[in-house]
Design a protein around this nucleic acid. Structure first.
Length: 942
RNA sequence: GGGCCGCUAGCUCAACUGGCAGAGCGCCGUGCUGAUAACGCGGAGGUAGGUGGUUCGAGUCCACCGCGGCCCA
């Protein structure tokens, strides 16, 4: 016996029950134990930032991680699934700042780094709990008990080892980097933060400035800027080597600018000379300000590749420390770099005229100063998009800061090669987004002047400046499990090997992307610990994350492992699109279009959401997600499957069908319909298995949906009578065995996709056995019958034609007709199917399709018989009778109805399980009247 | 400004290498039902974003343009 299956399941409840069952039985652990010692399939979990609650987009990546892990396990591999938590970084710090109501480094330090970092740690733990619960609810099987944490001392020391390895290879250096910087919070901002702070239509000065040539003060280069405050820091002017420039005379003076930009000049002018940008290269000019004389050559014209003729003058004012292009250019040309502005965004004392002034306040004063000195050509105002600090609304400055770098540009060729050797799904990311990113690789700035992160293991001698990189706690004289975070680590001093003086740690912490990029070895504590595990689990066979990780984890994994091990740390990667709202808009709190995963789980179930992600859009595309879409998944797929299952269980129990009692009938003894289904099933198994093997999840999932539709709307629809009939013959057994095999196989095929539903079905169908502990189905080639599949689809086509013809002739299907003519010969069973579906007496073969619509008296009465059967069935249902209950049918009939009963009474009785037809109308029986010629009523037969 | 992806019915999406434009939802009509949160048939609904090109033949290949999304500058 099977457990009775309701025809109206509540999927979220069902899921929770299965989840509890897994917890109680340790099914996940069993699935791992089952494959212990088997070949490994290596999966790496990209650690979510333990900050913020999981959203619907997190279900997406986790659904794809899970489907592959489960599939490979069922294919016989040992798939370790070590959870991981990315615990460091600015997001965590910002959360604590918000909680404390403070902002910026100064206030953090006043609060105390020790207490601050302790709060960060606590916050992380709290979020990890929420993430664990969420992951379990969506059936994402992960080993949470053995999770790796980027904040652990073992992890940190692995990361230090990686840094030291790079350090020893000369790949680490300290340099200058321009970052968006908030002078009030005194911190550079990450690109993520920057993205939140752009404001349109921001007014800024627009000034055109004369730079007088040293050898010819009557001639000036004309440059344009919207940040006058950077002018005291001017060190060079940049031109494009190939652009056409002109020298024009205007009044007493000569001006040089791009020919394409002549429109910026006021008044008449006369072109006196044309020349290419490269002819200007090397010209010296008079500096605007000389407060901070550069130590080396400056104040001359250089060529650059970023000069635009879309705006400005084609002559670009270059202030080394206040623009990314500017800084790179100066570094390339060897032009010295000096700050004129301090970390609070105020002019340094050396810039006497503006000393101490916040730069934005100095803007008008500088413009006025230049005007007085005759260096201002003209000034005005423009409106453009400008970034502001998303927290305090202060205008951001682009500001060069000390930063530590890894020379990834030196490894560019290897990075590109290792990426090329990686299988990307979808394929275009390899050469597209990722390849493009790698081609434009810049050295990795990995330091952050913050607090909650892996501290940089670099010590510098206070006396001689010697530097040292450390790779373990032991080297510092600390126990291996010491807390290695700030501020404790800051207190550790080392003796200088060179001069014996004291060495102090540099104050920065590490970019959290370096942490997560180190997980292949750091999750084991390698190389201090876990050497064997690391060797057995590197590189990964598979990872999956969203597209935005091309610049995040996909890159940091690639870069770190390319440097350390010479190869990429993943062989196959699924790269997913965004979860967006029905209009294609990114979900965001401010738009109010965020779908809460918990809400979706509770209303539709996590299987529904997972299935939606596997089927609704190609991998890499965005998912337009809405309640409506999920309702469709439930209704059309999950419940359709469930109802086939429920149908099977109901009748199997009535008939006492026990799958293991009888040997499987050979194919030759099964009906064509059964052989058709088994052939379809065999193809399905091959398709699903093959597609999953290629990481083509769409290609695997969509055919299952099509199969279930056929199963429900053709196979079961056509087979119903075979289960109902009272005799237990070979055909009935064949029907049960076939449907049973299809259901068991489909539940196994679906196990990786919809783990809850598949489990519920399989456990009931298969002796309580978990579907996640069995092997993935293998296709049975013997079941293939392509000719039969073709014949069946042609038979179905004939039915479609016939029904359309009936519709045109306005003839109900209930009304039997003499014949249909079809254009090919069908084997008898299929011909019968056509006959049934079209309710015709005969299927003939002929040149073209035709429906004979002649209705004889006999046929008309038979139509009435079917009418009556339907009425009785409706009454049975309404009276709450069980499907197998027998009845006594009472009737009062006149005219055609009476003639019909004489002729077809036996048929009516058989169809309605009536043991007796009685031509009487008991007083106490309600019944129904049809027109004025028929009354019927029924009672359960005793 | 650059890169990548997308643009097919009102909506969400299909269509192996170029070969008769489809499904689901929604709408209208109709049929069937011990068949479920159903199902069947018919209908309305398409300039395949646009323009050119290659080809016997283009939704599919090429070029350019437009719109949307993501990323970078």
């Amino acid at each position: 016996m099977f457990e009775p299956a309701t025809s109206r399941p509540h999927l979220p409840d069902l899921e929770r029950q299965v989840m509890e069952l897994w917890e109680a039985e340790g099914t996940f652990q069993q699935s791992l134990a089952l494959r212990e010692g088997a070949p490994r399939f290596v999966f790496y979990e990209g650690p979510p930032t333990a900050n913020g609650r999981p959203g619907t987009h997190h279900v997406l990546a986790r659904a794809f991680k899970d489907v592959v892990g489960r599939y490979r396990t069922m294919k016989g591999f040992f798939v370790e699934r070590k959870a991981g938590w990315d615990t460091h970084g600015l997001p965590v710090e910002l959360e604590i700042e918000k909680k404390l109501g403070i902002s910026g480094k100064q206030q953090i330090e006043e609060f105390g780094i020790e207490r601050f970092n302790e709060l960060c740690r606590q916050s992380v733990y709290q979020y990890v709990d929420a993430w664990t619960e969420f992951s379990k609810r969506m059936a994402f099987w992960l080993d949470f008990d053995n999770a790796y944490w980027t904040l652990s001392s073992d992890y940190i020391q692995s990361v230090w080892w990686a840094l030291k390895t790079m350090w020893e290879r000369g790949l680490v250096y300290k340099g200058f980097r321009v970052a968006p910087y908030c002078p009030r919070c005194m911190t550079p901002l990450s690109s993520h933060e920057l993205a939140q702070g752009w404001q349109d239509d921001t007014p800024d000065p627009s000034v055109y400035v004369r730079f007088r040539l040293k050898d010819d003060p009557g001639t000036s280069l004309l440059a344009w800027t919207t940040t006058p405050w950077t002018l005291p820091g001017n060190v060079a002017l940049a031109v494009d080597a190939d652009i056409d420039y002109v020298k024009v005379r205007q009044g007493e003076e000569h001006l040089i600018l791009a020919e394409a930009r002549l429109g910026v000049l006021d008044g008449d002018f006369e072109v006196v000379e044309r020349l290419k940008g490269r002819q200007l290269e090397g010209l010296d000019y008079e500096p605007l300000y000389t407060y901070l004389p550069p130590e080396g050559r400056a104040w001359y014209v250089v060529t650059a590749d970023f000069v635009s003729i879309e705006e400005g003058t084609g002559v670009v004012h270059t202030a080394a420390a206040y623009g990314a292009d500017d800084l790179r250019l100066c570094q390339e040309k060897g032009i010295p770099i000096r700050h004129t502005v301090d970390l609070r965004g105020r002019f340094l004392p050396a810039v006497e005229k503006f000393a101490g002034l916040p730069v934005k306040e100095a803007d008008p004063l500088i413009v006025e100063d230049l005007r007085k000195r005759g260096l201002l050509y003209k000034s005005g105002q423009i409106r453009h998009t400008y970034p502001f600090c998303w927290r305090c609304k202060t205008a951001l400055l682009y500001y060069a800061l000390d930063s530590w770098y890894i020379r990834t540009t030196e490894l560019k060729r290897e990075l590109v090669a290792n990426n090329a050797a990686t299988n990307w799904v979808p394929a275009h990311v390899k050469t597209g987004r990722m390849g493009d990113w790698l081609e434009n690789n810049v050295d990795w700035a990995f330091s952050r002047s913050r607090y909650w992160g892996t501290p940089l293991p670099f010590w510098v001698c206070d006396a001689c400046g010697a530097q040292r990189c450390v790779a373990s706690a032991e080297e510092l004289g600390l126990p291996a499990d010491a807390d290695l975070h700030r501020p404790y680590i800051d207190e550790v001093k080392l003796p200088c090997d060179a001069c014996g003086a004291e060495m102090t740690r540099v104050s920065e912490v590490l970019d959290a992307w370096f942490d997560s990029g180190s997980m292949p070895f750091a999750q084991r504590g390698y190389p201090r610990l876990g050497k064997a595990e690391f060797d057995a689990s590197f590189p990964a066979d598979f990872i999956a994350e969203a597209m935005d990780q091309t610049r995040g984890w996909f890159y940091s994994l690639l870069a770190v492992s390319t440097i350390l091990f010479g190869l990429n740390s993943y062989r196959n990667v699924i790269c997913l699109g965004l979860v967006v709202d029905p209009k294609g808009q990114k979900q965001s709190k401010s738009r109010g279009n965020v779908l809460d995963p918990t809400f979706l789980f509770e209303n539709f179930g996590s299987d529904a959401l997972r299935w939606f992600f596997y089927t609704s859009a190609p991998v890499g595309e965005n998912y337009r997600t809405s309640e409506h879409e999920l309702r469709e998944v439930v209704r059309q797929f999950l419940l359709t499957l469930w109802n086939v299952y429920s149908f099977f269980v109901t009748y199997a129990n009535i008939d006492g069908f026990e799958p293991s009692r009888e040997p499987a009938l050979p194919l030759s003894e099964r009906s064509a319909l059964d052989r058709w289904l088994l052939s379809r099933l065999s193809h399905l198994v091959e398709t699903v298995d093959g597609s999953l093997d290629r990481y083509d999840v769409n290609g695997a999932a969509r055919p299952v949906q099509a199969f279930v539709e056929d199963l429900s709307n053709w196979y079961v629809r056509r087979s119903r009578r075979r289960y109902w009939k009272s005799e237990s013959d070979a055909d009935k057994l064949s029907a049960y065995q076939t449907l049973y095999e299809a259901l068991v196989t489909v539940s196994r095929l679906l196990a990786p996709f919809t783990p809850f539903l598949a489990e519920a079905l399989h456990r009931n169908l298969f002796n309580g056995q978990s579907v996640h502990l069995v092997d993935y189905p293998a296709a049975d080639p013997a079941a293939r019958d392509a000719a039969l599949e073709t014949e069946m689809s042609q038979a179905r086509e004939a039915v479609v034609h016939g029904l359309a013809a009936r519709d045109r002739a306005r003839l109900k299907v209930r009304q039997p007709l003499p014949a249909v003519t079809v254009t090919r010969e069908f084997q008898p069973e299929l011909a019968n199917m056509i006959r049934d579906e079209l309710n015709v007496k005969e299927v003939r073969t002929g040149e073209e399709f035709a429906l004979d619509t002649t209705i004889t008296d006999e046929l008309r009465l038979e139509g009435l018989a079917r009418e009556l059967v339907r009425l009785v069935q409706e009454q049975r249902k309404r009276s709450g009778l069980n499907i197998e209950d027998r009845i006594v049918l009472y009737h009062q009939a006149r005219g055609d109805w009476s003639r019909m009963l004489d002729r077809f009474g036996g048929y009516v009785a058989a169809e309605t399980l009536a043991v007796e037809l009685r031509a009487e109308r008991p007083e106490d029986l309600e019944g129904v009247t049809v027109g004025d010629e028929l009354w019927i009523g029924l009672r359960r037969a005793s």
